[in-house]
Design a protein around this nucleic acid. Structure first.
Lengths: 250, 250
DNA sequence: CGCCCTTTTGAAGAAAATCAAGGGCAGTGG
DNA sequence: CCACTGCCCTTGATTTTCTTCAAAAGGGCG
């Protein structure tokens, strides 16, 4: 079974080895999705749950005027299509922001796993509640663009960190300014200016399609980011010392 | 058991009389919450699931600058505190927008019901997915204030309609302009001006603490509202004729 | 009656969108 | 190898949208 999915659900630390055995017994397959292609489209009734194995994807909707709004990012281990339990057609689309490997598990397999272990059901709930908490935070945080941008970067850092995709305190965000703007609800031009502000404040470094965050603590302080709402095991609780060692800090 | 909750979960039309029997056997109590009081506060680990029996409530968060952002409305039958399954503290608060009667059911009771019937578990999933769909729509729709406001009113109309709180095609929204503004992320002053625009366009009538929508179809057309995303049985599918009769339309 | 809350309106200022143009870099093809 | 092309980033100038500050009017209630 998909390793990213196992890792993601396992983050809750509520799964037993029995639960992992069940998850590993699920039949799954992998598809490759090129950057810019949709993984799921509006109106789909997939029958599968899709899991990002590698790459970044996003949920989005299109407005009346044709503009796109990204309503959430999907990192490795995140899944979509779980709405299939309700038989409803999807009300938004999912697109690959970079080339992705995407795992698929049939809905019936998921239902089998949930029936076999209430802990797995709870882990799925927990992941869904995290999506919801992030959505609420995007709304709460949509006041001024610079801080929104900083907060979004902190979110992506925290989520990447949870799945061990942060190296030496540095995260590469493989997104264009247009993609970030679509997530913040601002224009690419304005996104650029806000990036410049963060850059000149010494909070991020950025190159084309890359943002580097060297000093996450400063960035967090800048936008009052507190990772609790994401409900993921925060590394800095138990291993801030480790990371400090790696960075040669303190 | 709480009648509003039964009605709400029953909207999915996937519950059998067996399921309703289970729900009705759940032990519950009712508390009264005055307008302006919190039902749940940030950091709470409630142990109960709370259900609005009557009145309107809202989820909200407080920003660094002290301003409030409403991230969702709760109408009769809607519930909160279900996050308790994950043992996480609440990351936002719930407040009564008007005087409310609120039912409480112990978490363990809910878990018993879910264990006894997968249909009940699915109904809870469905309700959560509706919350999420609404959050996504708030983000998608946050482009220009007039249309956002119109869209929000359409949402509240659709949700009220689903629980039979629309009379003769007219809905009374018992919210102040400040409360609406907190939900849209705009100032009360600007909310007022946007209301004026809708009023002068003949789309709504409003008095202090009341918005009347006489012609919902015109309002929906104005902001391109389509109720599908709410995933509630739309009345206009099966009973448009009925409502038309009541209104004397067609 | 007087107070508080809500609504309403005006005027000035800030934030973001829009319009427009130029530059860097990678990949493609001659 | 180099020119061309497309995509992304960057910057400036103007306009629109929303906020902020200020003030006043209406209604309900002790």
């Amino acid at each position: 079974m998909a390793s990213a999915f196992l890792k993601r659900l396992g983050l809750s630390r509520q799964l037993s080895s029995f639960d992992f055995d069940i998850l590993q017994s699920l039949a799954w397959s992998v598809i490759q999705v090129k950057r810019g292609r949709d993984i799921l489209s509006i109106g789909d009734r997939p029958g599968f749950v899709y899991i990002i194995e590698s790459g970044w994807a996003a949920r989005y909707g299109i407005r009346r005027d044709g503009s796109r709004r990204i309503t959430g990012f999907m990192l490795p281990g995140d899944f979509c299509g779980i709405h299939a339990v309700t038989e409803e057609p999807l009300d938004h689309a999912i697109t690959a922001l970079v080339d992705c490997n995407v795992g698929r598990i049939q809905k019936a397999e998921i239902e089998r796993a949930v029936a076999a272990s209430s802990a797995i059901g709870k882990a799925l709930w927990r992941a869904k509640l995290m999506d919801e908490a992030i959505l609420r935070m995007w709304l709460l945080n949509s006041q001024d663009s610079v801080h929104s941008l900083a907060h979004l970067i902190c979110e992506l850092y925290a989520r990447s960190d949870a799945i061990d995709e942060v190296q030496d305190g540095r995260l590469l965000v493989p997104l264009t300014q247009e993609q970030l703007g679509d997530a913040l609800g601002i224009t690419p031009v304005h996104t650029n200016r806000m990036m410049k502000q963060l850059r000149e404040a010494g909070l991020i470094e950025n190159l084309p399609k890359e943002i580097r965050i060297a000093n996450i603590d400063a960035l967090r302080a800048y936008c009052s980011f507190s990772p609790h709402y994401i409900h993921l095991p925060e590394r800095d609780d138990q291993s801030v010392a480790q990371r400090g060692d790696r960075l040669g800090v303190t």
